[in-house]
Design a protein around this nucleic acid. Structure first.
Length: 549
RNA sequence: GACCCCGUAGCUCAGUCGGAUAGAGCAACAGCCUUCUAAGCUGUGGGUCGGAGGUUCGAAUCCUCCCGGGGUCGCCA
């Protein structure tokens, strides 16, 4: 099925026949940058040269001579200095992808590479003490796309949001809400919001929306701050869930930290103690994370007897481990990278496989407008909300911008560019290609010249632009599985952009609906196949594929 | 101070488990619409890959040091 696999197998066979076998040599087959270097290439001769102490070009020549591949698969094999073996694919194998894609439809690009292994993905997980901010939108984009990629690659996935609805921060949230209630009833004289931890105006809204009887009770201190905090965090969590839903971010569960207290937290503590991974010092209990590579031991129970946040996090991850996922992927914000070694250490202490917990760092997002950073409002606690960004630029643009870059790199989000509904905006470039194809198909149908999809003769497709486009289509599945394995969504945006380019070039060079019916039918099918792949790529990104623009 | 991330074209960034002449988008300039969407296509200019060493057939990629930017270092969450 996959041409690469056939080529790898043929190279392996050629090595055996030529007596060039060397254990542990990886037969890499990659796409050369230069089209002149063929469609696929292997540097394996150069790897072997080192081991066998022979001239790499000579080895490459022996491989090229010994490789045996069907002529309808590979048209040319060439050994080139300094020692590459280049393969030029035969037209038939490229042409066959067109009907194959049309037959597969939305399944094209999917694979069973994951073999049903299960991966749990935890993402966003922002505290329910305020509205979601920009970096959460980025995490939501990246996490969703990784889930889509894993699903497409045959993994069983589970998406989860960890809600820190417990502890001092919730009490502080309650106190801040109480102040806003006092303000509502004109009883806040002599106090200022500056004294409180959560000065954002959203608590004013929550205090204002509560019914009067309830809100008046909040003024009395018989209502505990923790209770008030739970009220506020529930309201905030509800709005977070709405935001995530509107953004198209999938969550199978919202896991509440509060459900871990006290039993699961105690159980995690007991396990670490029983495993001999703890010691007491200054009245506190420490987890010896340095034994697992952390640079400092970490407190898990404070001198006052309370568990730390870290211990609850360990309990949470122990819960995940007990659920039996083959792997857990967690997205963390840029201010949390210090947590990685200690969390890895804790999982090791609990007996997880070394690579069981995989952490992906999501980089900072800086909003830029007119070339300058957007300054946060002067009022403390007011951040740019995710909701504002979405209202401003739309879901598609926001997601695409976040997925264009590597997840862990800092990102300047150019609002000025994102707002432009023009050719300067990269989102529209890809969407436009899809809309353009839809339009051409409509045109052909209106003229009554649109044959049924997949019935054409693909051997009509011989132009260089047609060949280049088919080659791109052929590479989609390996792009998807590679992006899934590497957890790198930006590979899909890069691919989508390249595919759009290949299509636009084809469109300009080749008239689709033309004089020759057989050629028109073949080109229309090529356009349809391109549309399928663009749609599948955009689906993975969570971005819509419009039929007209 | 220790540790982590980053430094590639004017701007934003790909390329980083070592591979061929370092790429894309935007910006600049010059062309292309009487026929399927010009949100498109074609071309031009633009680089000591932060710097200096090292490893080797080969380094943007790996190692060391330095410079610059950001971050983390709590019995907070």
């Amino acid at each position: 099925m996959d041409v690469r696999e056939d080529i790898v197998a043929a190279i392996a066979e050629a090595l055996r026949r030529s007596g060039l076998e060397a254990d542990g040599v990886d037969i890499a087959v990659e796409r050369p940058r230069e089209a002149a270097h063929g469609d696929l290439s292997t540097p394996v001769a150069m790897s072997l040269a080192k081991k066998l102490k022979q001239n790499p070009l000579a080895i490459a020549e022996r491989i090229a001579a010994a490789v045996d591949l069907p002529r309808d698969l590979v048209a040319a094999v060439e050994a080139v200095r300094p020692g590459f073996v280049n393969f030029r694919l035969a037209l038939p194998v490229l042409q066959r992808t067109v009907p194959a894609i049309l037959a597969s439809g939305d399944r094209y690009g999917r694979s069973d590479a994951g073999k049903g292994r299960t991966i749990q993905v935890e993402y966003v997980s922002a505290n329910p003490t305020g509205p979601l901010v920009i970096v959460s939108a980025r995490a939501a984009s990246v996490g969703s796309c990784i889930l889509n990629l894993l699903d497409a690659s045959g993994y069983g996935t589970h998406a989860e949001y960890y809600v820190n609805d417990y502890g001092k921060q919730i009490e502080a949230l309650g106190e801040s809400l109480r102040f806003r209630a006092k303000e509502r009833f004109g009883q806040a004289a002599g106090e200022s919001i500056e004294q409180y931890q959560y000065p954002g105006s959203y608590l004013t809204t929550i205090a204002g929306e509560a019914d009067e009887e309830t809100a008046r009770k909040w003024l009395e201190h018989t209502v505990a701050s923790a209770e008030l905090g739970r009220y506020a965090s529930n309201q905030l969590l509800a709005s977070i869930r709405r935001d995530m839903q509107d953004f198209g971010a999938r969550f199978d569960d919202y896991f509440l930290e509060s459900t871990l207290h006290p039993r699961a937290v105690q159980a995690a503590f007991d396990r670490l103690v029983a495993g001999g991974h703890t010691y007491q010092q200054d009245g506190a209990v420490f987890f010896r994370s340095t034994a697992f590579g952390d640079d400092k031991d970490r407190v898990i129970r404070k001198a006052d007897g309370e568990p730390t946040y870290f211990l609850a996090d360990i309990a949470y991850h122990a819960d995940k481990l007990a659920r039996g996922y083959d792997r857990a992927v967690g997205l963390l914000g840029p201010d949390h990278h210090g947590h990685v070694p200690r969390m890895q250490a804790a999982m090791a202490a609990l007996g997880a496989a070394p690579d069981w917990l995989e952490i992906i760092m999501v980089g900072w997002v800086r909003l830029m407008e007119g070339g300058n950073p957007v300054s946060m409002s002067k009022r403390a606690g007011e951040f740019i909300a995710m909701r504002e960004l979405i209202d401003d630029v739309g879901v598609d643009v926001a997601k695409y911008f976040f997925l264009m870059r590597r997840a862990n790199s800092p990102l300047d989000f150019d609002l000025t560019l994102a707002r432009k509904q023009s050719d300067e905006n990269p989102v529209y470039y890809v969407q436009y290609a899809h809309a353009r194809i839809a339009s051409v198909i409509r045109f052909a149908e209106e003229r009554g010249e649109a044959a049924a999809a997949g019935k054409s003769d693909p051997s009509q497709l011989v132009a260089p632009e047609e060949r280049a486009l088919m080659l791109h289509l052929l590479h989609f599945p390996v792009t998807v599985s590679g992006a899934a394995e590497a957890r790198e969504p930006h590979r899909v945006t890069t691919y989508a952009q390249e595919l759009a380019t290949a299509f636009h070039q084809f469109y300009h060079a080749c008239r689709i609906v033309g004089e020759d019916p057989a050629l028109s039918a073949a080109r229309l099918d090529l356009a349809r196949a391109t549309k399928v792949v663009l749609k599948n790529a955009l689906d993975l990104l969570g971005v819509t594929a419009p039929s007209s623009m």
